[in-house]
Amino acid sequence: MTQKVRDLMTGPATTVAPDTDLGTVARLMRDQAIGSVLVTSGGGTIGLVTDRDLVVRGLSRTGHPETLPVKEICSADPVCVGPDDDASAAIRLMSEKKIRRLPVVQDGRPVGVVSLGDLAAERDEDSVLGQISASAPS
């Protein structure tokens, strides 16, 4: 039986509006112990911002994080998958595009995120990445 993205994804999706400031996004990630947030407008996914984006693209800019909107640092038009897509197809897509997280979208609306860690924990729980991904956040 083929494994589906819905079996591995983290959901529901955590979303913010494009004008949400970086400080709010960072606190949301901290409070929910997550590494990415989807940027949405009109119910559709228009971007993805990661904890790394906050540091590399956000804090490195001039200005205060409380005044910089997430739309200025997120990865626009992210590659997405559906919850009923095969997990193996998601793995191939991540490999081809060299990305670590894929928004999961159903009927145009975000429902979750599947990460490289989610896939590693499922496929090889004894791998270092699988062990790290399966452990509780610190």
Rank of each mutant, 00 (worst) to 15 (best):
5 V>C: 11
7 D>V: 02
11 G>Y: 06
11 G>D: 02
12 P>K: 10
13 A>F: 10
16 V>H: 07
21 D>A: 07
22 L>Y: 03
24 T>N: 03
25 V>R: 09
25 V>F: 06
27 R>W: 10
28 L>A: 04
30 R>S: 11
31 D>G: 12
32 Q>G: 08
32 Q>C: 01
33 A>D: 14
35 G>F: 11
45 T>E: 06
46 I>M: 14
49 V>F: 01
49 V>D: 04
50 T>G: 06
53 D>G: 11
55 V>S: 01
56 V>Q: 05
58 G>Q: 10
61 R>W: 05
63 G>Y: 10
63 G>P: 06
65 P>C: 08
65 P>E: 10
65 P>L: 02
66 E>M: 12
69 P>D: 13
76 A>F: 00
77 D>A: 12
79 V>M: 10
80 C>T: 15
80 C>I: 14
81 V>T: 10
81 V>Y: 02
82 G>F: 10
82 G>E: 15
85 D>R: 00
86 D>L: 11
87 A>Q: 09
87 A>Y: 01
93 L>W: 00
94 M>D: 03
95 S>V: 00
96 E>K: 05
97 K>S: 09
100 R>K: 14
101 R>K: 13
102 L>H: 02
103 P>H: 02
104 V>G: 02
105 V>N: 13
105 V>Y: 04
107 D>H: 14
107 D>G: 07
111 V>W: 04
112 G>H: 01
112 G>R: 02
117 G>L: 07
122 E>Y: 15
128 V>T: 15
129 L>A: 11
129 L>C: 07
132 I>V: 15
133 S>Y: 10
133 S>K: 07
138 S>Y: 12
138 S>P: 15
